[in-house]
Design a protein around this nucleic acid. Structure first.
Lengths: 199, 199
DNA sequence: AAGAAAAACGGACTATGGTCCGTTTAGCTC
DNA sequence: GAGCTAAACGGACCATAGTCCGTTTTTCTT
């Protein structure tokens, strides 16, 4: 993240103690285990601490809060997706034209839901703080850049949020569960909004 | 409220006991009082119960949960807005052309935030259940209707949600507080999305 | 007006996310 | 390897939303 770009040996890399790393791993493993065996609604912090053989404080020290834990559970997929849209091949990566990249971004984000649906839903921040997560900020920056590259000049900050808001997991969840709609419909709808906005 | 439109004596009107009604009023009054004097973050259920001179169970019996309480606090403004877009004068009401109504709807919804911002923010349902509130369903139905009247034929369910999602209070709150943006910018951005979608 | 049935009351109780701080341990220095 | 320091640990503790059920009150019936 904030690793210095300079000489690798300078500027104190904040060493991670081995017990801390090991505990984080055990917590994540236990969390996946609980989710698989008992369902996501059984994943309380107390239960998880007991299951991982760890104090509750350790979980909060490692992940900050419940949302941080869920973020960590989906971190690998998120990082992969970030790599793809930052430096991967077309249509997500920088070698594709900007509109194509934008459409691919939305589709990718929505399909992430299809894979990690319950996780994302359970982990979505409760109101405040949802926007402060680094991954979300990166996404916002990315969409703003693509909008500019598509020729949008005015009000880019606002328009980017207008495009990002419908990508939140609960929107897709609602559409899929209560209206007669498939993920393909959601993708197509979002892309239609994006195309017409840029055109 | 839910007074029957038909013959008053038919269809068992579920009588509201007088003590219940009085307590609801006292709770709402106490809530506004606490918010005004001590700030919205001091409005815990225990505190409110003590302040209203009422048991905590009474609050939950009357409003269901914390979100229900906040919904009740903004109920009057919400009902007024509903009246306006269902049967009021143009540009919100049925005598205006559909696109104009749609733009006015978005603006009205966003300006509601300017008035009741903290309330709406604090009361916004925590993830699940946000879509099941009657007011939200009415809004969704309204936007779907307007989209159809604007000539949108395909995927109306999805497109309506794409337009509704950015109207959630936390989006506006984020834009206003962290980016250099005014409510007018938010309104203009949303309207641009709506116009380009329909065109 | 008295009695009965249904509804509402209230506050102790539960569940759960998150904090605090005295104790333990990893990793560095000599 | 002994000792030191900063970091991590862990579980008691706190705050708060929401539930439960014995008690009280309203309102209907006769």
């Amino acid at each position: 993240m904030t690793t210095p770009r300079q000489l690798p040996m300078a500027a104190a890399p904040p060493r991670v103690r081995r017990d801390a790393a090991a505990n984080s791993d055990r917590i994540l493993a236990a969390a996946r285990d609980v989710i698989r065996c008992e369902g996501i609604e059984s994943l309380t912090m107390d239960h998880l601490a007991a299951r991982a053989g760890v104090g509750k404080g350790t979980i909060f020290r490692a992940f900050g809060n419940r949302s941080g834990l869920f973020a960590a559970l989906t971190d690998e997929a998120e990082r992969t997706f970030q790599q793809e849209f930052l430096s991967g091949p077309p249509p997500l990566g920088p070698d594709a034209p900007p509109l194509q990249r934008l459409l691919a971004y939305g589709e990718g984000r929505l399909r992430l839901y299809a894979v990690h649906g319950p996780l994302l839903k359970a982990g979505s921040q409760d109101g405040s703080g949802r926007f402060d997560v680094p991954a979300r900020q990166l996404s916002a920056t990315h969409v703003r850049m693509l909008l500019r590259q598509c020729g949008v000049r005015d009000n880019v900050d606002v328009l980017a949020e207008m495009l990002l808001a419908p990508l939140e997991p609960d929107v897709t969840d609602h559409l899929l569960s209560t209206r007669n709609v498939t993920l393909e419909h959601v993708v197509a709808g979002w892309q239609r909004v994006a195309v017409s906005l840029v055109r």
